[in-house]
């Protein structure tokens, strides 16, 4: 590759706590691929949509504060959370398309001595792999093709919609996650729920809806022959993995579907071990599926 890829790295709150394994694996994978990730120790939470439910101006200003830091180091942002991606991208779309909003936001930021000029882009790991790094280059790094893995891609909502703010993949004809799975040597499983919601946003509000939704997505993938899932979003992972037991109880049946973070699936194909990938942190064990596929 001609030029080293550099990003202002924004793992998001979830991957600094509950889904730490997504963060650490991303760092390891990036190192092997030669992608430079620059930490943003000052970066605040994007609000996960909850701040827009409180005060739109506050939400936009806090997101602009994150962008200002990326501008300071002159890099685009790469996140590993779809919700962060959606929240930041919609704020960025509004700021870039509405000069009055940018001016107003900068007047608010000025109170903290900050300014955003509207020059950065927000991306997620999936896009970086599929486009910036490139599938052909990724293929060269595959040491252990994931043969025998039948992977159900789970986009969830926020890496696809609203497409006028995200503008990368087509929610009606997705390709990026499928392409990465294929390059890694695994089989893509098609199923209806891949671009639907995992239910995370109402986990603490209407748990019944959340659990039933999670169960439906998992079962859908399983019924189409999937033996594991992969998602670019840590919130989706929380529901699909951590809430899977609750979904099984609600549906009164065993699902047993291991769910990988995108970086973990990539790392696995690059020959990283289960310890490297911190697979033991998942509530649904991937051991049997990986053994069966001769990948352990």
């Amino acid at each position: 590759m001609a030029k080293t890829l550099k990003y202002a790295y924004y793992p998001g709150c979830a991957s600094q706590a509950v889904t730490k394994e997504a963060n650490s694996t991303t760092r390891k994978v990036a190192k092997i691929l030669g992608i430079e990730l620059h930490d943003m120790p000052k970066a605040n939470c994007c609000g996960a949509g909850l701040l827009t439910d409180y005060d739109y101006d506050l939400s936009v200003a806090l997101n602009a504060r994150i962008f200002a830091q990326a501008e300071e180091i002159g890099m685009d942002i790469m996140t590993i959370c779809s919700t962060c991606l959606m929240v930041m991208s919609t704020a960025n779309r509004d700021l870039k398309s509405d000069p009055k909003l940018l001016e107003k936001t900068n007047a608010i930021l000025a109170a903290a001595g900050l300014r955003y000029n509207g020059t950065i882009e927000v991306k997620q790991l999936l896009w970086v792999l599929a486009e910036d790094y490139g599938l052909e280059n990724l293929k060269k790094k595959v040491a252990m093709p994931l043969k025998n893995l039948k992977v159900a891609p789970f986009y969830g909502c926020h890496s696809l919609r609203p497409s006028d703010a995200l503008g990368f993949d087509d929610p009606e004809r997705t390709w990026s996650l499928e392409a990465v799975i294929t390059i890694l040597g695994a089989e893509v499983v098609e199923y209806e729920g891949k671009n639907k919601c995992c239910g995370f946003q109402v986990d603490m509000i209407t748990e019944d809806t959340a659990v039933e939704m999670t169960g439906k997505r998992l079962l859908d993938a399983k019924n189409e022959g999937g033996n594991c899932m992969v998602t670019p979003c840590p919130f989706c992972h929380i529901n699909l993995d951590n809430y899977q037991g609750m979904a099984e109880r609600k549906l009164n049946m065993k699902i047993g579907m291991p769910v990988f973070h995108l970086a973990q699936l990539v790392g696995l194909a690059m020959g990283m071990t289960a310890e490297d990938l911190e697979l033991s942190r998942h509530l649904v064990s991937a051991k049997d599926v990986l053994k069966e596929a001769n990948l352990l």
């Binding site: 949509g49 959606m86 909502c157 926020h158 919609r161 609203p162 497409s163 929610p171 639907k196 919601c197 239910g199 995370f200 946003q201 109402v202 509000i205 209407t206 809806t209 959340a210 939704m213």
Partner: peptide
């Protein structure tokens, strides 16, 4: 109330 505005899962399909 239950089944009201807080039950939206923010899937963004409505706006899309």
């Amino acid at each position: 109330e239950a089944h009201g505005m807080w039950d939206c899962v923010r899937c963004v399909n409505c706006t899309q």
